[in-house]
Computed example of a mutant assay.
Amino acid sequence: MSIIEPVSCIAFDGHRRIAAGPLADVALAAKQALDGGAQGRLLIFDDLSSRPVELDLRGSPADVLARLPPPAVDEEPVQRGPGRPKLGVVAREVTLLPRHWDWLASQPGGASATLRRLVEEARRSHRERDAARLAGEAVDRFMHAMTGDLPHHEEASRAFWRKESERFTQLTDAWPADVREHVRRLATRAWQAAVAGD
Rank of each mutant, 00 (worst) to 15 (best):
residue 157 S to A: 10
residue 177 A to Y: 02
residue 169 T to P: 03
residue 95 T to R: 12
residue 37 G to D: 00
residue 45 F to I: 03
residue 174 A to F: 09
residue 3 I to W: 12
residue 46 D to H: 15
residue 111 A to F: 02
residue 172 T to A: 05
residue 43 L to Y: 04
residue 9 C to L: 07
residue 34 L to P: 07
residue 184 R to M: 14
residue 117 R to L: 11
residue 91 A to Y: 09
residue 9 C to F: 10
residue 81 G to E: 00
residue 108 P to I: 01
residue 136 G to Q: 07
residue 11 A to N: 07
residue 46 D to G: 10
residue 6 P to S: 10
residue 17 R to D: 04
residue 53 V to N: 07
residue 19 A to M: 02
residue 126 H to L: 00
residue 2 S to T: 14
residue 182 H to I: 06
residue 3 I to Q: 14
residue 39 Q to L: 05
residue 94 V to F: 03
residue 33 A to Q: 04
residue 43 L to V: 13
residue 187 A to V: 03
residue 13 D to Y: 08
residue 174 A to L: 10
residue 40 G to E: 09
residue 6 P to D: 04
residue 11 A to S: 04
residue 9 C to G: 10
residue 110 G to Y: 04
residue 71 P to S: 07
residue 184 R to V: 01
residue 82 P to T: 12
residue 81 G to F: 02
residue 194 A to L: 10
residue 39 Q to N: 09
residue 84 R to V: 12
residue 104 L to C: 05
residue 25 D to T: 02
residue 170 Q to P: 03
residue 94 V to L: 00
residue 54 E to Y: 09
residue 129 R to W: 08
residue 50 S to K: 02
residue 5 E to S: 11
residue 27 A to V: 07
residue 135 A to M: 07
residue 171 L to M: 08
residue 37 G to V: 11
residue 18 I to L: 09
residue 11 A to E: 02
residue 19 A to I: 07
residue 53 V to R: 02
residue 137 E to W: 05
residue 27 A to G: 05
residue 2 S to Y: 11
residue 146 M to Q: 05
residue 57 L to W: 03
residue 74 D to K: 11
residue 166 E to F: 15
residue 41 R to K: 00
residue 39 Q to M: 10
residue 34 L to K: 12
residue 190 A to Q: 00
residue 78 V to K: 09
residue 160 F to C: 05
residue 180 R to I: 13
residue 119 V to G: 11
residue 175 W to Y: 08
residue 133 R to V: 13
residue 150 L to A: 05
residue 13 D to V: 05
residue 19 A to Q: 02
residue 16 R to I: 05
residue 111 A to V: 08
residue 16 R to Y: 04
